[in-house]
Simulated assay, not measured.
Amino acid sequence: MLKKFNYVLAFIFSILLIQASPAFAQEQNAGSIAGKNTITVSAADSKAYKETYTNLLAAITSFKDTASFPSQSISYKQVGTIINDVLNDHPEIFYFQHKGTTAYANGKIELKYKYPVKKIKEMVLKQDTKIKTIIKQTIKSTDSEFDKVKSIHDYIVLNTAYDWENYQKGQVPDASYTAYGLLMNGQAVCEGYAHTMQLLLKEAGIESHLVTGKANGGVHAWNLVKVDGEYYYVDATWDDPVPNRAGEISYKYFLTPAAALKKDHSWDEKQFPAATSTKYAYFQDIFSAKELGTYMYFSNNKDNQKLYRMKKDGSEKKKLLNVSTPYFVLTKNNIYLSNYSNGGYLYQAKLDGTQLKKINNIHSIDLYLEKDQLIFTNKATGTKGSVKIK
């Protein structure tokens, strides 16, 4: 009995070692995640690793109580890392529980789950239905790989709020770390964003990988994706403003090469294919973007957030307004903006940038449209105001 008890303690300790928990916070986004680990095995042991991985995946997705591993080739201390690899590769598994899962020297693994099996099956069905609905709504049969990645990135950013309030309290719920929580609740931290990207891209037929590392010194998670034979990094979390701003989306971390991402992210690049293409580097200029017709309107990161317009392929790029424009909305005829080159006051201009004129004397932020009203927040008082628009 003492021998079994010691094995249990040793395994639980190894599980704790592979679950990174340092909190990460920075001005725009934050997150805490479980770190990916890699077992270094000999050629002979690689077969045992694959066997263990396959056994675990089959057992967990069938909600079995036990799984097995070849104890003559792999130590029970390595099982925790293989479990992590299974979970990192399969973000649809939101219901597995590390705590209480136990590996024994005889090759047996006792598995634990967060919920009763009946409830898990109901939740999995809801998740599968949601995924299929999103793909049907966002992806067309004629879409290119680029179109698919952009549509999924945009869906996640526009339909998710970073769980900032709970993060600040140190009370982030388990759901916010999972794709299930993001899909069902519209709320997540970085691991939830990255897992959801991975899950939806897989459903759309796009190769992607979960990447874990650090960003601005804190633990973080994002994705590596393959588009037309080239690899790029995508950080959907950092493309979503915090606190949440409905309808706002950034592309600074969309389809970036490794060299650009390394400015504020760090990770073990050797674990992943090289990402060197700069084909989509023009997206890194885009801070806040709106689409209308064939054009993207955006605040330019590299030009003091001046308002620009271009097509999705980067062509026809043109500066529309020579004023700093971090907040703006579009109608079929006009642009309404917070002019940060003049007190943040509300301005109006035509879609081509002409006829710029001031329409209030209030520092206005968080703009959005509601029927025939332009709603804004008074930066000084925090109260909402409105302007009737045509």
Score class of each variant (00 low, 15 high):
298 F>N: 12
294 T>H: 10
297 Y>K: 08
344 G>S: 12
310 M>Q: 15
332 K>W: 00
306 K>I: 00
273 P>V: 07
291 E>V: 10
297 Y>F: 15
297 Y>W: 09
336 Y>S: 10
286 I>P: 05
281 A>L: 14
280 Y>K: 07
271 Q>V: 03
343 G>E: 07
339 N>V: 06
345 Y>V: 12
351 L>Y: 06
296 M>C: 10
343 G>I: 00
296 M>A: 09
338 S>V: 08
332 K>L: 04
311 K>I: 03
301 N>Q: 13
365 I>L: 04
327 Y>N: 15
349 A>T: 05
362 I>Q: 09
310 M>I: 05
267 W>D: 08
333 N>T: 15
349 A>D: 04
323 V>T: 14
343 G>V: 00
307 L>D: 11
266 S>C: 01
353 G>Y: 02
320 L>P: 08
300 N>Q: 01
269 E>N: 08
308 Y>T: 01
367 L>Y: 05
301 N>K: 12
291 E>K: 12
333 N>Y: 09
329 V>K: 10
287 F>P: 00
324 S>H: 02
362 I>E: 09
304 N>W: 00
346 L>R: 07
310 M>P: 02
359 I>M: 11
339 N>G: 09
275 A>G: 12
340 Y>I: 00
265 H>Y: 13
356 L>A: 14
342 N>D: 15
344 G>W: 10
355 Q>S: 15
264 D>M: 02
313 D>E: 09
290 K>A: 05
307 L>T: 10
323 V>C: 06
339 N>R: 08
281 A>M: 07
328 F>V: 03
342 N>F: 11
267 W>V: 05
320 L>D: 12
367 L>T: 07
364 S>Y: 06
346 L>G: 11
273 P>K: 09
291 E>I: 05
352 D>P: 03
278 T>C: 03
271 Q>R: 15
298 F>P: 07
291 E>H: 02
287 F>K: 12
367 L>I: 05
336 Y>R: 08
318 K>H: 07
348 Q>G: 00
351 L>H: 06
284 Q>R: 13
300 N>L: 00
352 D>L: 05
290 K>I: 00
347 Y>V: 02
270 K>N: 13
299 S>H: 03
268 D>S: 12
272 F>I: 04
280 Y>M: 06
317 K>V: 01
337 L>N: 04
294 T>Y: 01
280 Y>F: 14
338 S>W: 09
360 N>L: 05
276 T>D: 12
281 A>C: 01
291 E>Q: 13
295 Y>I: 02
315 S>A: 13
331 T>P: 06
327 Y>T: 08
299 S>L: 02
363 H>E: 13
297 Y>T: 08
307 L>Y: 10
342 N>V: 07
338 S>F: 09
340 Y>T: 02
361 N>C: 00
361 N>E: 13
292 L>I: 03
279 K>T: 15
267 W>E: 06
334 N>Q: 14
313 D>W: 03
284 Q>W: 01
331 T>E: 10
325 T>K: 08
358 K>V: 05
309 R>Q: 14
299 S>K: 04
354 T>M: 04
308 Y>P: 00
